[in-house]
Structures are given as structure tokens and as C-alpha cells.
């Protein structure tokens, strides 16, 4: 029962917050609504037993990504010297497309047909041998990341370095 209540509260925050992000007129308020959405999503992660991911979400998403966005808002308002008021165009088209996408996904979610196709494999996953006795989310997460997902892990580190260098190169002021 507790999970049901928590889910609906979080879902409400997510939906209302998201609507505020896409319809609000004040960019800064949109950013704050986004923060609420991100925190609620972290709550959903905890509901699903992904504690480590929830902390990653709070630290990186709310802590870093959102701060960058808010910084961008304030900096741009500072440069232009005026408050940015948001406008929405093509509301009809946007609404139609969004409804269509939602209907499609909701249909998938309700029918759930074929969703269980691949999960009946009876063979034991070899990675389980490494996870013998692992009892916490963080240990399992780290073990998987450094064994099975070692290549994407290393690749992501190069990726982040390059994204940082690139961002510095285009954002720095001319000498």
C-alpha cells in the first residue's frame, strides 16, 4: 500500500512539474519545476530498488546538470539585460503529436503483449558467478560496471573528457 501511495504522489509531481516546464512563461521557474521532476524521478528509482542510481540522479542531474541550466538562464538574462519570456507556438501540432505518442506508448503499457518474450531464458547468466554473496545495490552495480560493462565504462570516460574540452573550446572568450 505504501508503494501505491508513494507512486501516485511521485507521479503527480512528475506530471505537474513537467507540464510546468513546457508551459511556463518564466524560464527560471521552468528550471525550478524541472528540479522537482528530477527529484521525483529519483524517488521512483528508490521505489524500484535502485538506490545507487537515485543518488547518482540527485548528485549529477540535480546537482550538476540543473545547475548548468540555471546558470545558463541567469547568464543569458544578464547578457541581454532583460527577462526572457517564453512563448509557445504551434500548440495544436504539439498537442496532436504528443497525444499520438502517448496513446501509442500507453497502448504498449496496457497490453504488455510480447514484453516478456526474452526473459524466459533458463540458462544461467555467467555474470552471476561474480556476484555470489553480493548483497548491496552498490556492490553489484560496481562489479557489473567494471566487468561486463568495462568497455562502455572506459569509453564514457573518454567521451566526458572530450565533451568538456569541446565545451571549453567553443565557450571561451577570444584572446
Amino acid at each position: 500500500m505504501g508503494e501505491v501511495i508513494a507512486f501516485y504522489i511521485l507521479a503527480l509531481i512528475i506530471v505537474l512539474g513537467a507540464l510546468a516546464v513546457v508551459t511556463g512563461r518564466n524560464l527560471f521557474h521552468c528550471g525550478l519545476s524541472l528540479a522537482a521532476v528530477l527529484l521525483a524521478v529519483a524517488g521512483l528509482f528508490i521505489l524500484n530498488g535502485a538506490e545507487f542510481l537515485a543518488w547518482v540522479q540527485v548528485l549529477i542531474y540535480v546537482g550538476a546538470v540543473l545547475v548548468i541550466i540555471l546558470y545558463a538562464i541567469m547568464l543569458s538574462e544578464n547578457i541581454t539585460g532583460e527577462r526572457i519570456l517564453l512563448i509557445s507556438q504551434n500548440r495544436g501540432v504539439g498537442f496532436a503529436a504528443a497525444t499520438l505518442v502517448f496513446a501509442l506508448i500507453a497502448f504498449l503499457g496496457i497490453s504488455l503483449s510480447g514484453l516478456l518474450a526474452g526473459h524466459t531464458s533458463s540458462v544461467k547468466d555467467p555474470v552471476l558467478a561474480l556476484l555470489e554473496g553480493a548483497d548491496s545495490n552498490v556492490i553489484v552495480f560496481g562489479t557489473l560496471l567494471l566487468t561486463r560493462y568495462i568497455l562502455p565504462f572506459e569509453f564514457a570516460s573518454v567521451f566526458l573528457v572530450i565533451a568538456l574540452i569541446g565545451a571549453l573550446v567553443i565557450a571561451r572568450t577570444a584572446e
Binding site: A129, L130, T147, L151, P152
Partner: peptide, 9 residues
């Protein structure tokens, strides 16, 4: 085992 995961990735 690590090699197996590398090769399947």
C-alpha cells in the same frame, strides 16, 4: 570471462 564480454560488446 572478461574477454568474452569484450568480444560480445
Amino acid at each position: 570471462r572478461l574477454g568474452y564480454w569484450l568480444v560480445t560488446t
